[in-house]
């Protein structure tokens, strides 16, 4: 079991943002997490990668690296693209001195080509468009060969072709590395192309769990409302 979450609770300002959530993600499986803005999706990812401490519940992870692609890229704006991507290779204690500068340059070039951004090594994040930043942050996250990958809205704000590129890459990476992936997304195309299973969050709780096909079948009031983007249904915008 690559990632297992049991009875997770996270309280912010006396509100249960994550309220008794449990799920599992196996190796080489991709779980999509969907839900309203503010339903706690980013919080779940931050809990899993240890950036935030849970109030109760367990998170069980298999050994190895866990990577995260942040919702707003979070590129280091004082470093150029190449240094952003090679950050872990240069700065992490167990990886420092593992590669020569030349090898690192090759790795960076290879990752950039993979995300369709060949030859922008010397640009700074502020010189890139939002979508380009997202793809660079994708390259930065996977540079260490992680065995679990968390994606926070990897395709939002991207044009359909770049989205497809990223989606294909999520799938390819999973097949190659057998990584367990969690993809937070609003986009049906990303769910359909990448996910093996989907969970839907509302008000900190799981209100649907199933395959993408089951989600589209509209048997569940919540997913029905989500898929049809309807204002009518059990979910309301939370204040």
């Amino acid at each position: 079991m690559a990632i297992e979450v049991k009875n997770l609770i996270k309280v912010y300002d006396e509100r249960r943002v994550i309220d008794d959530v449990s799920f599992k993600v196996r190796d080489s499986e991709t779980l999509a997490v969907v839900g309203f803005s503010g339903s706690g999706k980013s919080t779940i990812l931050k809990l899993i990668c240890g950036l935030v401490e849970q109030d109760s519940g367990d998170i069980i992870k298999s050994d190895g690296d866990i990577a995260m692609v942040f919702q707003y890229s979070a590129l280091f704006d004082s470093l150029n693209v190449a240094d952003n991507i090679s950050f872990a290779l240069h700065e992490r204690r167990d990886l420092r001195k593992k590669y020569t500068e030349k090898q690192i340059r090759n790795i960076v070039a290879e990752k950039l080509e993979m995300v369709g951004l060949k030859g922008i090594e010397n640009k700074f994040p502020s010189e890139l468009s939002g979508g380009m930043q997202k793809r660079v942050s994708f390259a930065r996250a996977i540079v260490t060969g992680p065995n679990s990958i968390l994606y926070d809205e990897p395709t939002s704000g991207l044009d359909p072709i770049s989205s497809t590129l990223i989606e294909d890459y999520i799938v390819r990476l999973k097949d190659e590395t057998r990584a367990a992936s969690i993809v937070v997304t609003h986009q049906m195309s990303t769910i359909e192309r990448t996910a093996d299973r989907v969970i839907m969050l509302y008000d900190g709780k799981i209100v649907f769990e199933g395959t993408p096909r089951e989600m589209l079948a509209k048997n569940n009031e919540y997913t029905k409302q989500f898929v049809t983007a309807s204002l009518e249904g059990p979910m309301h915008m939370l204040a």
């Binding site: 979070a74 590129l75 280091f76 930065r140």
Partner: peptide
């Protein structure tokens, strides 16, 4: 600024 734009989170996730 690095904190509020999650750059410090990114440093931590990259195990630095």
């Amino acid at each position: 600024t690095m904190r509020v734009t999650e750059q410090i989170d990114a440093i931590e996730v990259l195990k630095v």
